[in-house]
Design a protein around this nucleic acid. Structure first.
Length: 818
RNA sequence: GCGGGAGUGCCGGAGCGGUCAAACGGGCACGGCUUAGAACCGUGUGCCUCAGUGGCUUCGUAGGUUCGAAUCCUACCUCCCGCACCA
């Protein structure tokens, strides 16, 4: 290596840190910009290029905005509570705290070596009591408002994690942390956060966000809003509401289906059918969650009949495996003719199929139907509603039922309350006390934080149960002996408000200073992976809205703009420790320097796309850096041509725009093109402007080169501005004409060579109106490797033995070779 | 099944109505430099043609809109990613 890039990197990283140039504080007159990457869980294995990519994308943006004159908040911290640390602790016999702190130390070291421009003074670690104290405080506020509650419910249980999970942590019937572990459904008493109270707002406000469309869609689907009506069916003299979005099919209902998990199922099961139903339940319970979803639709008659409130018909009620207990009312009205599931079920159990909606263009017939007709149409056999369009009928029938008080329009959400209690150690203790006399009593705010005890035994059950001293506590109400809650909070709680704490990370009096948060929030640019679409990215919106309602925030949404970066692949699959295809930044750095790695990662493709890491590829970036290095070490500062100035200004304009829109790859290409057209002498403005723009991608080498002429930091220099009047479109066109000419010349040379002639001299004849070609003698010479002469066609003294000059046309010079 | 995205040269990947045989990088070939190699520099890299600056065929497949399409529309195929019995 001709240049010791590693040395340069270290030197500037240290200098930046010592000069504290990336530290910020609120400045009234200065426009702020908050750039944030989703903070990492500090895994024991450290970070590889895949992780690095994420931070580098953010760093470029932060540097760019900073140079543009914004007061940029760009912090980093660690989401340091979580199961992996606890599991590692058990495996390696090391305390989770020690394990985590070591991992964090390693992360910091690695991140610093990437040249990231964080304000490290604001670092937060969620496992520290100074942070999780406020998790507990928020919990208590929610408790006060009735937003957290304890309930016995059917919950997702991961036998591997040995804890309950939130719905968002179940992927395809399996645990989000254990791809091969099937979730069990258990009935347990757990703590829930009533996120559903905010479902409407969470759903509707998605439209206000400038987020990638797919993420917005995923959230909308997850929250799942649907309009419908609860219709009252009478079963055994009692009223049971049944939710449907299709009241227009009410005349086609031939049976009801109740979920096998319905809490009040046995109220409607008759004595005669009890055995049968129990047998059925036993069978489903022995089937795994995933298989139930794939299972054929099955059910058993409950023995009861329901009365259709409109038709007064008696219809049988079945208990079924395909009805969800947690959605709607857990009972559905079944219209086999117009719902595929109902159709399949009816076919299997020989239940009647009754058509009440006919399509416009053909006529359905019960006997010939192969599948349900679920589209719109005209109502038939529907009493007074016959003949209406189904869409219209939905409204009319709903109106009618509301009038008669047999139904009520409702909005249903798919989103469920957030189960936040975990039966594990390494998390925020839930700040409540169980008292035999008083029940569940919140820990008084002034006693926060409830510090996680360090002396516990791992391996069996919840380790907190072994912290005997810690468990014992006086009931705050009756002062008698009581017991602490041993459940801890889901780690997603910690990450739901960390972005607020960055605004005031050391406050020990309050969760944060309202004014400081007001200054920095919202996050102007958030960067992270799409995998958080339905968990973190919903939770942090929910927290924001809740804290707003507490009067602590004045914003409705935590972040307006979100960017999803692509994944880094290697050898065809996503880079990951478990696949064993990781590339470590420190190793790349040793060989090529971290600037080359940054440049390569960002020039490969648009940063929102997946990219493939190749060792060859980075060599290309490295070569370019060497070229830049050499050039700047010998360039003379002087004047630039009008042509170059035009190109420079155009580049500034375009690169500014490209970076703003995350088209880093395009920006880099344009910078490379600008660099390629540099001469041995260029103006200071141009050279410095290039370095400044390039510095957001390769901060170390540019900082070093900058210091040849300056003693300020390029990292906080002012972003170059372009002068529109210097951009001359014609120069571009002329350049293209010259390229074309060179192509023609080379084509000719190739032809001649095929005929055994090797030309040495080149004569070009241009029309007097195309004078600009004369300026390119050197370029043409270089690109053709021929001794080059350019004449104007009206030049009396031109050398032209074959009268080629006659052939010259506008923008098509004549060529003679010999 | 539903939703989102993508299919471009040997490869990665730009382009998203004309300036496109297609940026930039990688690979490969040739030439220069060199004792030789590495590095570096230049050229070429769809096909044909030619002392020329021209023709033909290409951007998943098939149609369509247009004076004009890789770019717009329609259908289909393939791939990736989410959600998945939500009534």
């Amino acid at each position: 290596m001709e240049v010791n890039f590693q040395e340069i990197e270290k030197k500037w990283q240290k200098a930046w840190e010592e000069a504290k140039i990336f530290q910020v504080r609120e400045e009234k007159g200065k426009k702020k910009f908050y750039v944030l990457e989703m903070f990492p869980y500090p895994s024991g294995t450290g970070l590889h290029m895949g992780h690095a990519f994420n931070y580098i994308i953010g760093d470029v943006y932060a540097r760019f905005k900073r140079m543009q004159g914004y007061n940029v908040l760009y912090p980093m911290g660690y989401d340091s509570f979580g199961l992996p640390a606890e599991n590692a602790a058990i495996k390696q016999n090391i305390h989770p705290k020690e394990f985590t702190e070591k991992a964090i130390e390693n992360f910091i070291k690695q991140q610093k070596s990437l040249g990231l421009s964080y304000d490290w003074s604001r670092m937060i670690k969620t496992h520290e009591p100074s942070y999780y104290k406020w998790d507990q405080w928020i919990f208590l506020q929610m408790l006060k408002k009735g937003l957290v509650y304890r309930k016995k419910a059917l919950v997702n249980w991961c036998p591997e994690c040995k804890t309950a999970l939130a719905n968002e942590q179940v992927k395809n019937g399996r645990c989000w942390r254990h791809e091969n572990t099937e979730i069990e459904i258990k009935e347990l008493e757990q703590w829930f956060v009533k996120i559903t109270d905010y479902a409407e707002e969470l759903y509707e406000d998605i439209d206000l966000l400038e987020w990638p469309e797919n993420i917005k869609k995923m959230q909308k689907n997850w929250i799942g809003k649907s309009h419908g009506i609860n219709i009252n069916f009478k079963i055994k003299g009692k009223t049971w509401p049944v939710f449907t979005t299709r009241p227009d099919t009410i005349y086609g209902v031939t049976f009801l289906a109740i979920s096998w998990q319905h809490p009040n199922l046995f109220e409607i099961v008759t004595k005669k059918q009890k055995k049968e139903v129990e047998k059925f339940l036993k069978k489903i319970k022995s089937t795994s969650q995933k298989e139930i979803a794939l299972m054929e639709k099955e059910g058993v008659f409950t023995g009861s009949f329901a009365t259709n409130p409109l038709t007064k018909e008696k219809i049988p009620v079945y208990v079924c495996n395909f009805v969800l207990a947690e959605y709607g009312s857990g009972i559905v009205m079944c219209v086999p003719a117009h719902d595929q599931r109902d159709f399949e079920f009816a076919k299997k159990y020989n239940l009647p199929i009754k058509i009440v909606i006919q399509p416009e263009n053909k006529k359905l017939n019960e006997k010939e139907m192969k599948e349900a007709y679920t589209e719109e149409g005209v109502l038939v056999d529907s009493g007074p509603f016959t003949g209406l369009q189904s869409k219209e009928a939905r409204e009319k029938i709903s109106d009618f039922m509301e009038e008669k008080k047999i139904g009520k329009r409702v909005v249903q959400f798919r989103l469920k309350d957030w189960l936040i209690s975990r039966q594990r150690y390494w998390g925020t203790p839930i700040p409540v006390i169980h008292c035999k006399n008083c029940g569940i009593i919140p820990v008084p705010e002034k006693e926060l934080p409830v510090v996680l005890p360090e002396k516990v035994v791992f391996g069996k059950g919840n380790p907190l149960e072994t912290a005997k001293e810690w468990l014992k506590v006086k009931c705050p109400k009756c002062k008698k002996e009581a017991k602490r809650e041993t459940d801890t909070m889901d780690t997603f709680v910690n990450s739901s408000w960390y972005f607020l704490r960055y605004c005031d990370p050391k406050n020990d009096k309050k969760i944060f200073d309202k004014e400081k948060v007001k200054y920095w929030m919202p996050i102007d640019q958030y960067i992270g992976g799409a995998e958080h679409a339905c968990a973190h990215l919903i939770y942090f919106r929910f927290y924001t809205k809740f804290l707003r309602d507490l009067g602590l925030l004045e914003i409705d949404e935590p972040c307006v703009k979100l960017f999803n970066q692509g994944m880094v692949h290697k050898d065809g699959s996503v880079m990951s420790k478990s696949r064993g295809n990781v590339v470590l930044p420190e190793e790349v750095s040793k060989k090529y320097g971290i600037d080359a790695a940054r440049l390569f990662l960002l020039s490969m493709a648009s940063p929102d796309k997946d990219i493939e890491w190749t060792d060859k590829g980075i060599e290309g970036s490295y070569r370019f850096l060497l070229k830049v290095w050499k050039y700047f070490n010998k360039v003379k500062i002087g004047k630039s041509s009008a042509r170059l100035e035009s190109k420079y200004n155009k580049t500034v304009k375009e690169v500014t725009n490209d970076i703003e829109n995350f088209k880093y790859n395009i920006a880099i290409i344009k910078l490379k093109e600008l660099f390629d057209s540099f001469d041995e002498e260029e103006s200071k403005e141009v050279l410095e402007g290039f370095l400044k723009m390039f510095s957001v991608f390769c901060p170390h080498i540019t900082e070093e080169l900058w210091h040849k002429w300056n003693n300020t930091f390029i990292s906080i220099e002012k972003w170059p501005e372009w002068k529109e009047e210097k951009i001359n479109q014609q120069f571009d066109e002329e350049e293209k004409d010259v390229e074309k000419l060179i192509e023609d010349i080379n084509n000719l040379v190739w032809l001649l060579k095929r005929k055994g002639k090797t030309p040495k001299k080149l004569f070009v004849y241009v029309l007097p109106t195309d004078k600009f070609y004369l300026e390119f003698v050197e370029k043409i010479k270089k690109k053709t490797n021929l001794e080059t002469f350019i004449f104007l066609t009206n030049d009396k003294n031109k050398y032209d033995p074959e009268n080629k000059a006659e052939k010259a046309r506008e923008k098509k010079p004549a060529i003679y070779l010999e």
